[in-house]
Amino acid sequence: MFEKKKIITSTGVEVRKKPLGLRIWTNRGYYVMFLPVAIFVLILNYWPLLGVRFAFYNYKPVGEPVFNGFENFTKLFATDAFWVAFKNTLELSIMKLLITTATAVIVSIFLNEMGNLLAKKALQTIIYLPHFMSWAVVAAVASLFLSPSVTGMVNGMLRDWGILGEADKNIYFLANKDMWRPIFYIINIWKETGWGTIIFLATLSGINPELYEAADIDGATRFQKMRFITMPALANTILTVLILNLAKVLNMFESVFVLYNNAVFEVADVISTYIYRQTFAVALPNYGYSTAVGLFRSLVGCLLFVICNWLSKKVRGRGIV
């Protein structure tokens, strides 16, 4: 019924495929080397997937799980808080992705333009460092700086500069719905821009210097060289970074968890923090419901991944898998 596809070399010689067993035996070294990896992946990545079935159960810490069909999903889709979290996840993730990528590109270009190598290296190191700080530490520092108390540094500065008057109250940045997202993006820029520049600096260092030399001869200004040589060279990398990261946008948790509070749930609660609260902030959680939320998130994540793969094929000529 199915004909085997013949493999023909460029010289017209038909290649006969060896039997699978023989091929495995021939490459047994590689298969032996791959075996532990396969076992790792099966145990750590696929075995836990069996827990997905609990999305269809009423499963509490006490007693046996009881199958309840799509009840958890019905509740999920009828819960406003979930949709708020879903919307926030997409908005926060995509905005964060765009902003941090744009900042990383700009900083990379500026770093690339720096003539003093020592200053360039020092600056690079300084902006990389925040990436290695844990989110808990970053949140603690941010809370101190942004404290609405009389000891809060930022409020003190605003008062010293006259931006806050005598009659004005200190601003509670992290409990203010209008301010929380900008603060969140700024903290993310501060923490992740340095790390994000690595890939762009690598691309910039790969641009043929002859292009710049030719531009110099043609009398191009520094801005024109940036506009007509550097940016086009970076464009493909920028798109690649954006597409690769787009598939991960639903994975946001830690950065939000350490910075949000009840006052800003409306703009800050994301799916992961919603799952966390449903699972661990109540005495008798229904793990089935949490699993249903998680499963829904995974399905949306898969969809995004497929879209990204398609976009990647369009833009780069190859997929991301």
């Binding site: 819960t79 009840n262 749930f265 409306e266 609260r277 109540v282 005495a283 008798l284």
Partner: peptide
């Protein structure tokens, strides 16, 4: 038991 977390969140939203 099932909804105490959501109710607390709603109270905190009102307080906020």
């Amino acid at each position: 038991t099932n909804e105490s977390g959501n109710i607390h969140d709603a109270k905190m939203a009102a307080i906020s």
